[in-house]
Design a protein around this nucleic acid. Structure first.
Length: 469
RNA sequence: GGCGGCGUAGCCAAGUGGUAAGGCAGAGGACUGCAAAUCCUUGAGCACCGGUUCGAAUCCGGUCGCCGCCUCCA
C-alpha cells in the first residue's frame, strides 16, 4: 500500500487516486527572476521521482509545473537591463529546462506560465469578488481572509497569531481592509506590463495563478500539489483559500512539501545572494552524482549542500558503475540475450524491500540502502561464478529499480571503446606481465594513464577505460 | 514574540514501541607481481533530564542547541 505524507493532515495517508488509474500532480516551479540554483532542482527531482514511481505502479500520470513569469523583481530586472520582461523570463526558463535535461528528469506534461493564463485568472478573481470573498480597492483586488473560515489549516496558524507576527513587519497598506488580506490582482503602475480586467489594467498577484492553472490542467479536485516547505505559508495556504472559497469543494488530496537545500547550514536564497547556481554545479559534477546526492536524503528532510557531500556521492556512484562494467565483461551488455529466468531469492527479497521503502512516502534514502545491498549481492554472485542467465536476471532487477530513481541511465549505453593505440599498449603490457617484466609493465601502465586511461587487470584479462567519468 | 520541524557512530543518513539499514572515511584480512576493482571482518545504544510501559532512539513533559515560516523565495 502506497502511503504519502500530507501536510494538511499532518501525517502519512494511503494514496487513493481521485480518478481510478490516474494521478494528477501540480508542483510550484520557480519565479523566473534569476537563474535556477540547486534548490530549484530539488523540486524537479522530487516531482520526477514521484512520477516515475507512480508510473511504475501502473498509473497514468499528469505532471504540471508552473513558471511565475511576472512579478516585481522580473519587472525591475527588465527595466535595469532595458529589455522586455519576457526576455528575462524566457532566459531563466530556458536555463531551468536545460538543467532539467542535465539531471535526466523527464519534461513535465505542462509548464503553464502566469501571463498565458490571464483569462482564467481574471475569471477566478471575478468569481471570488462575486461570491463576496474578495473586494476591489483602488485598482487592486484583495482576498478578505476573515471571510474564509478554513484559513490557516494548512500552516496550522490562526489569524491572531498571524496578525501578531505580522504587525511588526508589514506596512499598513490602506488599500486593504485588514492587514492579513492578500492581493489577487494588482493595478498597474505607469509603464508596467499589464492586462485588461474588470478592475482596470493590472497583473495577477502571486498566489492566484496556481489556483487557476492547476485546476485548468488537473481539474477542480486532484491528487498531489507540491513545492518547497517555504511555500506552505502563505502561498499554499492562500491557494486553498482561493480554491475552496471559489468552488466550495476540496482542492487536493496530498500536499507534498520537500525540505530546503541548505548551504553551510543556511537556506539558499536569491534575495541574500547565498546560493549555488546549477550552472556552477553542472559544470563540476556529473548529473548522476547530483541526482544521487539529492535522492540520498528523504525528500521531506532538509539537505546540506557541500562539495564534500557531492564527492561522497561520486564515490557511491562509482560502485554502481564498476558493477555494471564488470557485468558487461562477464555476461555481456544489457538487452543482449536477457533470460526469462527468475532472479535469485536474495535479489527478489531486496526488490520487495526497495518497493516497500518507496511505498512508505517515497523513502528514497532507505531504498538506496537496499540498492547497495543489491550491488554487493551481484558482486558476490560474480565472484562465486554464478550462472550467467541468473546474473542477467538479477542485473535486470537492479536496472528496474534504478530506473525508478532515474539513476545510472548512462550506463545502459556506456561507450567503453578506447583508441587502437591504447589497446595496443594494454596488449604490450599484458605481454610484459606474462614475461614477468614488471618494470616494463609499470612503465606502460604509467604511459596509459598519462594518455588519460586507467588499466585494470580483471579476471578476463587487462582492460582499459577512460579515466574520470 | 507566534507557528512548524530537527538533534542517531569521525562525516552523511534510514529507522517512530521490542534490544540500531545503508553510504563515505578508518582499521584488519582475502585476491593481485604491485595496483585497481571486488569480497570478508570491524565501530554508536540514539542531545540532556524526568515520566509512561514488561520493554523507548521511537510515546508524554521539561531543558539546551540548530533550522524553517510569519516578508519575494523550491
Amino acid at each position: 500500500m502506497l502511503r504519502i505524507y500530507d501536510t494538511l493532515a499532518g501525517k502519512k495517508k494511503e494514496f487513493v487516486p481521485v480518478h481510478e488509474g490516474k494521478v494528477g500532480m501540480y508542483f510550484c516551479g520557480m519565479t523566473v527572476q534569476a537563474e535556477p540554483h540547486v534548490g530549484h532542482m530539488r523540486v524537479a527531482l522530487v516531482s520526477d521521482v514521484f512520477r516515475r514511481y507512480f508510473r511504475y505502479k501502473g498509473y497514468d500520470v499528469t505532471l504540471v509545473i508552473n513558471f511565475t513569469d511576472i512579478d516585481d523583481k522580473i519587472i525591475e530586472k527588465a527595466e535595469a537591463e532595458g529589455v522586455d520582461y519576457t526576455a528575462i523570463a524566457q532566459r531563466n526558463i530556458d536555463k531551468f529546462m536545460e538543467f532539467l535535461r542535465f539531471l535526466g528528469a523527464e519534461e513535465a506534461d505542462q509548464y503553464p506560465r502566469a501571463t498565458a493564463h490571464i483569462t482564467e485568472i481574471v475569471a477566478l478573481v471575478k468569481t471570488l469578488v462575486d461570491k463576496g470573498f474578495a473586494y476591489e480597492s483602488g485598482g487592486d483586488v484583495y482576498f478578505e481572509v476573515r471571510k474564509f473560515a478554513g484559513y490557516g489549516k494548512l500552516s496550522k496558524r490562526n489569524l491572531d497569531d498571524l496578525i501578531a507576527g505580522a504587525s511588526e513587519r508589514v506596512d499598513i497598506d490602506d488599500k486593504k481592509r485588514n492587514p492579513e488580506d492578500f492581493c489577487l490582482w494588482k493595478g498597474a503602475k505607469e509603464g508596467e506590463p499589464s492586462w485588461e480586467s474588470p478592475w482596470g489594467q493590472g497583473r495577477p498577484g502571486w498566489h492566484i495563478e496556481c489556483s487557476a492553472m492547476s485546476t485548468k490542467y488537473l481539474g477542480e479536485h486532484f491528487d498531489i500539489h507540491g513545492g518547497g516547505t517555504e511555500l506552505i505559508f502563505p502561498h499554499h495556504e492562500n491557494e486553498i483559500a482561493q480554491h475552496e472559497a471559489a468552488t466550495g469543494s476540496p482542492y487536493v488530496n496530498h500536499w507534498v512539501h520537500h525540505g530546503l537545500v541548505n548551504l553551510v547550514g543556511e537556506k539558499m536564497s536569491k534575495s541574500t545572494g547565498h546560493f549555488k547556481t546549477m550552472e556552477e554545479i553542472s559544470g563540476r559534477f556529473p548529473a548522476d552524482v547530483v541526482r544521487f546526492y539529492l535522492l540520498s536524503t528523504h525528500y521531506r528532510s532538509e539537505i546540506e549542500f557541500s562539495d564534500e557531500r557531492l564527492s561522497e556521492a561520486g564515490v557511491a556512484i562509482k560502485r554502481f558503475e564498476n558493477l555494471f562494467r564488470a557485468l558487461v565483461r562477464n555476461v555481456g551488455r544489457e538487452g543482449e540475450g536477457e533470460s526469462a529466468e527468475a532472479p535469485s531469492p536474495d535479489v527478489s527479497d531486496l526488490k520487495q524491500k526497495f518497493l516497500g521503502a518507496m511505498d512508505d512516502d517515497l523513502n528514497t534514502a532507505q531504498a538506496i540502502g537496499y540498492l547497495f545491498e543489491l550491488v554487493r549481492a551481484l558482486n558476490s554472485e560474480m565472484e562465486s561464478g554464478t550462472d550467467h542467465a541468473l546474473l542477467r536476471a538479477d542485473r535486470g532487477v537492479l536496472r528496474e529499480l534504478l530506473d525508478i530513481l532515474g539513476l545510472l541511465q548512462h550506463t545502459k549505453v556506456a561507450d567503453e571503446s578506447v583508441p587502437d593505440e591504447i589497446v595496443k599498449m594494454v596488449q604490450e603490457r599484458s605481454d610484459a606481465r606474462d614475461a614477468k617484466d614488471w618494470a616494463k609493465a609499470d612503465e606502460l601502465r604509467a604511459a596509459i594513464e598519462e594518455a588519460g586511461y586507467l588499466v585494470e587487470d580483471t579476471e578476463t584479462g587487462s582492460v582499459a577505460r577512460k579515466a574520470k567519468g
